[in-house]
Every structure is written in C-alpha cells, then in structure tokens.
Write a protein that binds this DNA or RNA. Structure first.
Lengths: 253, 253
DNA sequence: TTAGTTCAATTGTCTGACATTTGCAACATC
DNA sequence: GATGTTGCAAATGTCAGACAATTGAACTAA
C-alpha cells in the first residue's frame, strides 16, 4: 500500500495515533472500506505509514472504542456495520462531516430525528434558557446575519455554517439537559449537508435568517408554542432543501 | 496504592486493558475519583496493578475516547466533567448501571429525556414496527410476565429487569431509525435505577405489567394515539416510583 | 519585575520480543 | 467417508526498556 499522506510527529498538533485514525476513518467513511472488510494487519500499517506498531494500535483502539471497527486476536481488524458506529460521539460526527459521502443513509435518519425532536427542544428551551444561553444564540445569529450575503463564496461559507451550527447547538444546550447536550454532536454533519446540498438564492437565505430570528425571539419571550412552530418551519425548509419534503413549508397560518 | 482486585491475563474473558478500564471506571463512577482529579501516572498504575504500561495505556486510551478522562503530555490524566462523558455509549452506560450511585444527576436528565421522547418513539413505532419487532416486544413481555411474581427476590430480579430493558429497547429499535437505536443504551441504567429504587407491591407490579401490555397492543394495532398515551402512563408511574412526580398517573380517562 | 533557563514529571513513541487466540489444513482414527 | 486431533501460520494482546516531546514550576539573570 502506498499512502499519499505523511504522518509526522512534529508538523501536526495531533498525536501520531490520532493522525492515523483520521486517515483510516477517511477510508471507512468515504466507502473505500465497507462494513465487513478487513483492515491490513497492524505490522503492515506500521511499515506502510512508517510509524511504530504502538501508534497503530493506539489508532485502532480508538476506532474500536468508537464502534467503527472490531478487533479479534488471530483474526484481524474488521469494519463494523453502520448501526454499531457511535455516531453520537463528537469525533465520529466530525469524521462524518469531513469525509462521508452526502448520501450516507445515517443523515436521512438524523433529519427525521431532528424533525421529531427539535420542536420539542425549542419548546423546552423557552422554559430553561438563561441569559447566557440567549447570548450564545444571539452571537451565532449575528455572525450568520453578517455573513449571509457571502454564503455563496466558498471561503465565507464555512463561517456561515459554523454559526448556523452554533445557533442550533445553543438551543440544545439551553435545555440544560445532559442527554440533549450529548446529542448536539449530530448537528454538525446534518447542517453541513444542507449547506453543501442546497443551492439557495439570496432571497431564500434572507427568509431562512428570518425564520431563525423568529425562533430566537420566541425562546427569548418564553413563548413555547411559537418556538415549537418556528422550529418546525426551519426544519420544513431544511427538508425541502434536502429534497425530503415537497412544500417549502411557509404556507401555514 | 494497594488494590483489592487482581487483574489476570487468563482467568477472564476480557483483555487486561479492559479489566483495568473497568477498575478505573468503578473509581470514577462511584465518586472515588471526581472530575478534576488527577489519576496516578501510568508507570505507577502499571506497578500497582502488576501489568505492563502498554496495557495501562490501552485502558486510559479507551477512557479518553469515551470522554471520561483527558490526558496531556507532561501533565497527567485527569477526570473530565460529567458533561464530557459520552454516556450514550454502550460501555459507559453499562458502567453507570454497574457502578454509579443511584443519585447521579445524569439519571434525572435521562428520565426527563424519556418523558419527552418515549411517547413520540412509541407513536413512531406504530408506523414502522415489523413482525420481527413485535416478536421482540412480545418475547420480552412474556419474560416479564413469567417473572413478575418473583421480582422481589434478588436472584430473579435481574431476569425481570433485563426483560423490562429489552421491552423498551425493542420499541426504540422498531422506529428503524439509527439515532434512536443509538440512544437505546441509556435505558439500561435508567430502568435498573427504577427497579433498585422503587419497592412496588405485587398489585402495583401487576398494574405495571398491564400498562406495558397496553403499549404493546397499541403498537401492534398501529394505533398511534393509544401508543402515545400508553407510553406516557408508563413513564408517569416511573416518575412516581423515582419520586419525581406526585400522582401515580392512572387517573386520566 | 520580567524574560529566559533549567529541570523534574508525565505522556507519547519507538523497538523487539514473546504470549495468546483463531482458523485451517494436514493427519490420524474409527 | 466421517470425525476428531494436532500442528502451523497469521494476527492481535502483552511485556520490557529506552528515548522523545510536552508541560509547568522553580530558578536565574538582566
């Protein structure tokens, strides 16, 4: 195996084991390695990437803990089925966001999950949000607002999408419930997918911003029903952008 | 440090690293090691448990990946804050079930989460459940029914609680959504807590069984509203058993 | 005071060896 | 031929010892 990527001990903030985990995760998430496939043995990975077997084991141990691969003495390391992947972990969702093909089945499930839960989360947030939570939402919203015109250009797009993610994260955290706070990780790949997939016009983006503003205001005013509706509308538009729903969802009273 | 538990290479199905991870997890989850505390250095753990440093590192790597500890070169290994723990992971929730004090704050959040979501999950399950899903629910229910009388005795209690867990798991899985399927892991510590905490009479247990039966029937009949109500009632009783709610929740029409 | 230096402690990495597990093939036995 | 046994090769698991890199604190000098 000839690898295009060098793993360096000094030229990276990450440890060697972590770098190899990134490389292997890329292969798994972009489909080069499918569930059931067997990875090269540790010794081969070590010589191939020119690192020690200890570092290889560190990487594989990490991926095993995250449910992505399974290791058995004497047999080797095999890629696990999707359902075994711990994709509510922050590292895994980051890998999905970075490497996964946009049509990964998980992402449709994530959208359905958001449709079911986010209106309730928004509603719950109206009852729990502190000043600090509102500030986090407002900060994120302001960055979105300041960058929406430049969403088309690739450089600024990341700035906008990070703010979009931060906005929704802030709502999850405003529930002050540890379970919702964990689930927040799935937002990153989910929202990045929308932005990569959809090709919204300037007018549509302005409307999207307005929907976010309404949700934020509803939470600020502790208006539970309004927050529920506002969250539903944002997701309805998201579903339309992803091609999951027919109507843009702006027709309700 | 003198350890009461031996770590053996042969007398256990688990690898040495995994055994040490269990030991350290016990210390963390029962409160002997609090967030912010520093663990002994790797070399000390190695001599203390009489295993190699490689195995110690394997254990610590696992706990780091699960968000329970953080390691920094030169500084050592410290216990992370609760919110960093990846308690939607199966291993972590198992540790919570096995070692955590029943008053762990997370468990209250888990209960709130269940109250918000399980009626919706039950409702969704009515639309998705396959024959195989119904079978899994029925199998679990039958085991509960066969063991409810013996719930009091400690030996049989585990049999009942495992069936209880399996019953609720089956409903989550019946959504055929990967996200809900991941979240299923929090059920084990949550349900074990109820069984450990509450001291139900035989009559109350019979009523609990009846509530479960109604939920199962509602899902079988694809009656979305009935499933929603049935799930709500089970949780209402659960909240009462845990001391979170006032009324047993059987008064609705 | 402040900036730089040294130093001890700890995790990160490397190397090489051996132990254990696993599946399979060859073989022996009935 | 069917079946049980043995031996072997491949892979992960564990061990031991050494060195590298990182960090923070104590120390020193301008």
């Amino acid at each position: 195996m000839n690898n295009s990527v060098e793993i360096s001990k000094t030229n990276s903030s990450k440890a060697v084991g972590g770098q190899l985990a990134d490389e292997l995760a890329k292969l798994v998430f972009d489909g080069s390695l499918a569930p059931g496939d067997t990875l090269p043995p540790e010794t081969e990975l070590a010589t191939s990437y020119q690192i020690s077997r200890a570092s290889v084991r560190s990487a594989l141990q990490m991926m095993e803990t995250l449910g992505i691969v399974a290791r058995r003495a004497g047999r080797g390391t095999t890629v696990q089925e999707f359902r075994e992947w711990n994709f509510l972990d922050g590292q895994v969702s980051q890998w999905i966001a970075d490497y996964a093909a946009p049509n990964l089945g998980v992402l449709r499930d994530v959208f359905e999950f958001r449709c079911t839960t986010e209106p309730l989360i928004a509603s719950l947030a109206t009852k729990r949000a502190t000043a600090r939570d509102l500030l986090a939402m407002e900060d994120a919203f302001n960055i979105m607002e300041a960058n929406w015109e430049r969403r088309a250009s690739l450089g600024e797009r990341e700035c906008f999408s990070n703010a979009d993610i931060a906005f929704h994260e802030a709502i999850y955290r405003a529930t002050h419930n540890l379970v919702w706070a964990q689930i927040v990780h799935i937002l990153r790949p989910a929202i990045l997918l929308v932005i990569k997939t959809s090709n919204e016009t300037a007018e549509e983006l302005r409307e999207s911003l307005e929907r976010h503003r309404r949700l934020m205001e509803a939470i600020r005013m502790r208006d539970s029903e309004a927050a529920y509706v506002a969250a539903t509308r944002i997701l309805s538009q998201t579903g339309y952008d992803l091609g999951f729903e027919e109507t843009p969802g702006e027709k309700e009273t």
